[in-house]
């Protein structure tokens, strides 16, 4: 099942820590978003394989913008 991770807060993508094809566990840190001059970690919503990444470093994001897609169980 595909699970979409959307941005929980508005801000700027500081770091993308994973790439397409990477296998992640639930609650692994996948990105860092800078918001209000604070570095906020973003964690994987489920375990699986990353199939798509919707943002690049330095992109500005709004709440609910697509960050990445995980194929669960992959």
């Amino acid at each position: 099942m595909k699970i979409e991770l959307t941005s929980p807060i508005p801000g700027k993508i500081m770091k993308v820590l994973v790439g397409v094809g990477d296998v992640v566990n639930e609650d692994d840190e996948v990105m860092k978003i800078e918001s209000m001059k604070m570095e906020n970690p973003v964690y994987a919503p489920a375990a699986g394989t990353i199939t798509a990444i919707g943002v690049r470093e330095n992109d500005e994001v709004e709440v609910d913008d697509l960050l990445l897609v995980i194929e669960e169980g992959g």
């Binding site: 807060i9 209000m36 970690p41």
Partner: peptide, 26 residues
């Protein structure tokens, strides 16, 4: 400002990694 909002964000995420209280705390 904005120290205590950051404190709230960090405390909240300590108990639930998918919780982002930052904007509400702000």
């Amino acid at each position: 400002f904005p120290m205590s909002a950051r404190v709230v964000m960090k405390e909240g995420q300590k108990y639930n990694k998918k919780n982002y209280l930052l904007m509400h705390a702000m």
